[in-house]
Design a binder for these strands. Structure first.
Lengths: 261, 261
DNA sequence: CGCAGTATTGAAATTTCTCAAGCCGAGTGG
DNA sequence: CCACTCGGCTTGAGAAATTTCAATACTGCG
């Protein structure tokens, strides 16, 4: 319950946020300084703790600084369906800006640190600098693309491919975020939780992992994912990272400038 | 392939579009007239025809005027995974504005009519009237909420509930769009396609439908969905329409006006 | 009338889940 | 240092769910 509040948000947060926005477009100097002007609070979250719950109406958006967060639905029988996993640099709930209530919850899978970006400030930001708004909009769209991929994975892939696909996605995203450590990345889940993400029993998860391991594709244990053969893993997963690649927005700003003249 | 192009886009399209945007916020007179100023082309699509394909980079967004559209992934083996179904008033691919390439395809399930909104115009619109941008952003967020719900449905619900849930969702949305005809709505899919949406075989779909029918909850045949007992259907589906309800945005504009002063 | 696509049904084959038991490694306390 | 516990991982085997295969109706339409 120790929700420590750090009152002097380090420059680190702004740097990260600017970097994130820059991934999706070129920021003007004004854009950048506006982003740096956002007043953020940081907060430490303990392993397993909920950050926002289904049904709530938060007034700030979460920005992940470290650790891994997950979104999940709570089912009538109390069981969970995990929907997505989030790493440093992600904004897992900007949609809360525009949706009335949370349709799902957000929790920390390990000890994590987040920054809170007040909705009011974000709104203001988007109104005055629509370019920034576009960058954030893009983020929510990639989110949707990941959900689509999950639908397909859970609906149409066999167990091994399903697990392999999740591995690929997490590994790929961790690499994009420079979070790899000697070919490995964190994935602080147990097999049961993996099953709750992939719509399969933990036994099936175990057997799928065993196959992946035995075929020398990857290893996963104790919350660490180690890739052994990336190419073959991608192939058995049917993983195509296109859906994770955002438009550079150079294109968009192009269009923008053109249409302004 | 007869892609008829209607060169005098009726006021009907603008009316619909304005109505759509108004669902999510209050438009100023200026906003409204700007929307009405968008130059649209309308197009008739034939049953089964693709409108945009996976891998393409469209330059206009689709607005559904009549008929039903579907988004789907094409799997390596050529099979399909349907991701969502869209009715009159939907904008099934605004995300194409910001994502580099389509990660999925869009097709017509029956004969349909669409309007094409050029990306350039939309961009321009969002830049000058961010309020409109917010309304459209909201739409993509509800999209994501529907995807989340699909993940949970396909991952955690049994066959009967899964089918029932899809029925509930489509019926609910059709009602919102005033598309009901004496308690029934169109759902121009066969059982096989239903299976490709829900991650189950067409046999299982058939048996699930049979149960739903025998229990007097609903009937589905020949592309028509008739609800017999809405309350009980919702209950067996575990359907909670909260995720389909967008923020009225009165709230957002509130925030906006406040933060401007 | 007959065709083509769709729906329905039964039964076998397969996958997946549930249940149950044993294992392993980390942390704890004697 | 060792016994103990706890959570997570692994494995086997029977039960249940699901898919596949195959055959038979149904329906709208030319």
């Amino acid at each position: 319950m120790a929700k420590k509040i750090d009152l002097h948000p380090s420059r680190r947060v702004s740097d990260l946020l600017v970097a994130k926005a820059k991934e999706h477009g070129t920021l003007s100097a004004a854009d950048e300084s506006t982003i740096r002007g956002i007043k953020v609070r940081t907060r430490k979250i303990r392993h397993g703790e909920d950050i926002v719950c289904q049904g709530e109406r938060p007034s700030a958006a979460v920005f992940v600084l470290s650790g891994m967060l997950a979104r999940y639905h709570t089912l009538p029988d109390g069981d969970r369906q995990y929907l997505s996993f989030h790493i440093k640099g992600d904004l897992p709930d900007i949609q809360s800006l525009f949706l009335r209530v949370m349709d799902h919850s957000l929790c920390a899978l390990n000890d994590a640190e987040i920054a809170l970006l007040p909705h009011a400030e974000l709104c203001q930001l988007f109104l005055t600098q629509p370019g920034i708004g576009f960058a954030f909009w893009s983020l929510t769209l990639m989110d949707a693309a990941m959900f689509r991929e999950a639908i397909t994975s859970n609906g149409a892939r066999n167990h091994v491919a399903r697990v392999a696909h999740l591995f690929c996605q997490q590994y790929f995203r961790a690499r994009q975020a420079s979070l790899l450590e000697r070919g490995a990345c964190d994935l602080p889940l147990n097999q049961r939780q993996l099953g709750q993400a992939l719509g399969m029993s933990h036994i099936s998860v175990n057997r799928a992992i065993a196959k992946i391991r035995n075929q020398g594709l990857a290893d996963f244990r104790g919350g660490k994912l180690v890739i052994a053969n990336w190419q073959r893993l991608m192939r058995t997963a049917g993983f195509d990272p296109t859906y994770l690649k955002l438009a550079k927005l150079s294109d968009i700003s192009h269009r923008r400038f053109r249409s302004r003249q």
